[in-house]
Design a protein around this nucleic acid. Structure first.
Length: 465
RNA sequence: GUCCCCAUCGUCUAGAGGCCUAGGACACCUCCCUUUCACGGAGGCGACCGGGGUUCGAAUCCCCGUGGGGACGCCA
């Protein structure tokens, strides 16, 4: 049987880090086994679902390169199918109409909670051999409930958590269609997983409790039960649960925040899954290695520092043209236009080794294309009266030489030696004058890239004071 | 409250009864490299939640605690 997995988000918000990892694992599992990965949009909650959220989710998946083989399928467009199945179940007696009102149910729940019992439906309208049902009230449209078995238990071997057994006595008859006739989540999932031939359901931990109900419905439908793999959740950097109010951000935010998708992907893959000591691997390797056996069943805390470490690695590895185009975009956002000289690729070649973030990279090299603004304290600290003569002398010499890093280095050495100064004594003020801060790569290389004319102009500007 | 799940360095994890004196990675600390800041290199610090079993032998299996999390909607 060919493997078919799916990612089934509800379009009520962006694709966050947890959803992205679920999608990644489902995707990788399908790839690993030469199967299909399906995208299904669970939009039956009309109130909260939005087209913008659908777009946001697809944008996130697209950025990460999580391509799907089938879909997107929208549940709202599959109503006919659901209604047909609903009718079949009603006919077969595995589902029934329930006329209990929302108010009635709420009161019931309240009473049960008060009595410290598990809130659940009391089975008032559940048909039973020899049982007389209440009189159907006029003018009330009923909901449809699934007739869940009341004895025995549901057992499945979770591919992540192992054997899980839940007693049917713990479950009540869940509503599978609302009063307005629209089917609900657990029912749609069952019908879809069945009809789409899903073989492995890989989803979040929070669905563990839905699984036995879904298995019961699958059985009622005479369907093959897929395998289930429940992924534990991802906690925020602070160990707290991620929520809209606290720390949950779109994966696209990582793009904006200067992370390469390769880093995010590698990080996510390694969060809750491992392959021996492997830390750095590309998606091809990940798909080759991926298995459900090595997923940790416990929750994992997100660690931005490790993500940054991976980001640094992938910035070094990145294709230089792709990196350039990314950085040019970020510079544009800073209102800095990349000029022809120095070539952005060359500048990046000098800088990419030292950073772990693309925004930082753009920011660090901005001075090549825009005038830097040194702080008064840096100027005061480094451009002291005693080095000014040296700087003047150097400036004069630099105007005459061939403009290469070697020649510049040689020239600085000459001046330094002649005036009996330490190299940093002159390198630091040069940095402040040229770059605006006292930290940079090798100053001679920076100057070589900046160009003779620009370098001298910047030096003169400062020395005039 | 009921049910379900989880538990190894600060963090991500390796670990399938002897390869464990518990390994790797991030972070941190020290040193080296050095023209500053980084990068890089070499070291270091640092964990099996507690208690009972089972066994010749337990991080690993079982039970009980404890702690954390999840579910209990005409949400998904």
């Amino acid at each position: 049987m060919t493997v078919r997995t799916r990612f089934a988000p509800s379009p009520t918000g962006f694709l966050h880090i947890g959803g992205a990892r679920t999608a990644l694992f489902s995707w990788a599992y399908a790839k690993k086994h030469g199967g299909q990965f399906i995208l299904r949009i669970e939009d039956t909650d009309v109130e909260r679902s939005t087209p913008a959220a659908v777009q946001a989710i697809m944008d996130g998946m697209h950025w990460l390169g999580l391509d799907y083989d089938e879909g997107p399928f929208y549940q709202m467009q599959r109503m006919d199918t659901y209604k047909k199945v609903l009718q079949t179940m009603l006919d077969k007696g595995t589902a029934y109409h329930c006329y209990s009102s929302k108010e009635e149910l709420e009161a019931l729940r309240e009473a049960q909670t008060l009595a410290a019992a598990k809130p659940r439906y009391d089975g008032k309208w559940r048909p039973e051999a020899g049982k007389t049902l209440p009189i159907v009230p006029a003018g009330i449209s009923p909901v449809i409930r699934f007739k869940n078995p009341q004895t025995g238990s549901v057992v499945w071997d979770d591919l992540v958590k192992g054997r899980i057994e839940i007693a049917n006595a713990e479950m009540d008859d869940l509503i599978i269609a609302r009063a307005d006739g629209t089917p609900t989540y657990n029912f749609c999932v069952v019908v879809d997983d069945y009809e789409m031939g899903i073989t492995q359901v890989i989803r979040g931990d929070d669905h563990v409790n839905n699984t036995p109900r879904q298995i019961n419905m699958l059985n009622a439908l005479g369907a093959t039960v897929p395998q289930y793999a429940h992924l534990s959740m991802i906690l925020g950097d602070d160990g707290q649960k991620l929520s809209k109010r606290h720390g949950a951000v779109s994966v696209m935010q990582y793009h904006e925040d200067g992370y390469l998708k390769e880093a995010v992907l590698n990080y996510l893959a390694r969060l809750g899954w491992s392959h021996g000591d492997a830390e750095i691997f590309n998606m091809q390797q990940f798909c080759d290695w991926f298995d459900l056996d090595h997923i940790t069943p416990s929750a994992a805390q997100f660690n931005t520092e490790k993500l940054s470490w991976l980001n640094a690695h992938y910035i070094k590895e990145a294709n230089i043209d792709e990196l350039s185009s990314d950085i040019a975009t970020r510079l544009a956002a800073l209102n800095i236009e990349v000029k022809l000289q120095p070539k952005l690729q060359d500048v990046l070649g000098l800088y990419r080794e030292r950073v772990n973030n693309l925004n930082q990279l753009a920011n660090d090299i901005a001075y090549f294309y825009a005038l830097p603004q040194a702080s008064a304290s840096d100027i005061e600290k480094h451009i002291t009266p005693e080095v000014k003569p040296a700087l003047h002398e150097l400036a004069g010499q630099l105007a005459t030489i061939e403009w290469t890093a070697e020649a510049i280095h040689h020239e600085i050495n000459q001046v330094v030696t002649r005036l009996q100064l330490k190299f940093p004594k002159i390198a630091m003020p040069l940095r402040v004058m040229l770059i605006g801060i006292a930290q940079s790569p090798s100053i001679d290389q920076v100057m070589a890239l900046l160009g003779q004319k620009e370098t001298l102009a910047r030096i003169q500007t400062v020395l005039k004071y």
